[in-house]
């Protein structure tokens, strides 16, 4: 198979699940990676955005640049001999041209922004893992919104279409939420589930696509969650009262 990957922030991206996926797929497939948001300004803006989103008040300090204990994804890409390109934005014509020239069967995305309709239309099957309960919770901060609105958590691999997070679902993993987890712990479990979902998909893509579930339920699109609600979610996790989620207020 020929698989293209769209990632961002090559100078700092060090996410283990992406690296593991590249490692596992590189042996038997032809891979190609495009890193968007490659400029210093993009990295600074990304850092600020993460800082804006993090709720430091509750101690969930996740705004880290690359740490010395982890390797950067771009280093792994180089070591594996995977061809890669950097572009200002994966929605740019340049990116679409590079990916089209590679001729992938599938495109794996892990981005912090929406892929444009134009890019989606011009690429083959585009995949994404959504860290939230589909079809109920689409959009941003989906983990927090899922916990607040549905009182549970799951992760789904789905096809990227317009509108956001509404493409057919190829696989779902429920995520257990334990009081000791905290939001960072839940995010970690989500990443493990993402890796597992991609493994399952790429073990037999045709079957996964044949058995896809529709994603057209009565869901809503959610946006950046206010820090007060995030704090409430963190407290709910801590106090293990997620089942009461729907009846609580901030």
């Amino acid at each position: 198979m020929r698989i293209a990957f769209l990632f961002n922030y090559p100078l700092v991206d060090n996410t283990p699940w992406k690296q593991q996926l590249l490692l596992e797929l590189a042996a038997r497939n032809s891979l190609f990676v495009v890193f968007g948001k490659a400029g210093l300004k993009d990295h600074w803006q990304g850092y600020l955005r993460r800082a804006q989103e993090d709720d430091l008040r509750q101690g969930a300090k996740t705004r880290t640049l690359a740490t010395s204990t982890r390797r950067r994804t771009v280093s792994v890409v180089k070591e594996l001999g995977i061809p890669y390109r950097t572009v200002p934005n994966v929605n740019d014509d340049d990116c679409i041209r590079h990916v089209s020239a590679f001729g992938p069967d599938y495109v794996v995305t892990a981005l912090d922004h929406i892929l444009s309709r134009r890019a989606i239309d011009r690429l083959p099957v585009v995949l994404n893992v959504h860290y939230g309960v589909l079809p109920d919770v689409r959009g941003w901060n989906a983990t927090e919104w899922s916990l607040l609105v549905t009182g549970r958590m799951s992760v789904s691999l789905h096809r990227v279409v317009v509108p956001v997070d509404s493409g057919e679902i190829y696989g779902t993993r429920d995520i257990a939420v334990e009081a000791a987890d905290g939001l960072p712990g839940i995010h970690l479990r989500c990443q493990e589930a993402a890796l597992d979902l991609y493994r399952a998909f790429f073990s037999d893509p045709d079957r996964a696509i044949r058995q896809a579930r529709p994603n057209n339920g009565p869901g809503k699109t959610y946006y950046k969650m206010n820090w007060r609600l995030k704090k409430q979610v963190a407290e709910m996790i801590r106090e293990s009262r997620l089942s009461e989620a729907e009846s609580t207020t901030a």
């Binding site: 609105v149 969650m225 206010n226 609600l229």
Partner: peptide
């Protein structure tokens, strides 16, 4: 809750 969130 989306209305509450936007209001906040």
């Amino acid at each position: 809750q989306r209305y509450l969130n936007t209001g906040l």
